[in-house]
Amino acid sequence: MSKKNNDEIKLSIPNKPEYVSVVRLTVTSIANRMGFDIEKIEDIKVAVAEACTNAITHGKNEEDNFLVDFIMEEDKLVVNVSDNGRGCTTLNEIKNPDLDHLNHEKEGGLGIFIIRSLMDNVQIISNHGSGTIISMTKYMGEDH
């Protein structure tokens, strides 16, 4: 059986806040071209932007670029965001946002939770010092 080759687009993005909007526009256009409905396009856009924002704010390799990889399959879109930053070993343990943090100094902690809520499948590989890869999948169909 011959395996069908998937189309793939790769972006290398400078670690600068002004470029996240470029990724948002790109992924919107890719998902739209694949035929995702408006709500799913919005979910994908929001999730991918959160991953990019984390690569910039937490990856902290200022001179470096981070990579965004779009793999277009028949029934799904896979987006991988990878950085060469400091990594984080507790990334897979993040659960619900702690809204009682109203009393704490630190704001935030929403990004990973938002990604997990909006995408069908999320995998995070992150090791101390060797960067982070976050792989997100959204299916075209309704049964996911």
């Binding site: 943090h101 109203l102 704001e107 935030g108 990004g111």
Partner: peptide, 9 residues
């Protein structure tokens, strides 16, 4: 995004 929501919080 979450950064903006953090500002509102």
């Amino acid at each position: 995004d979450s950064t903006g929501l953090g500002v509102l919080i």
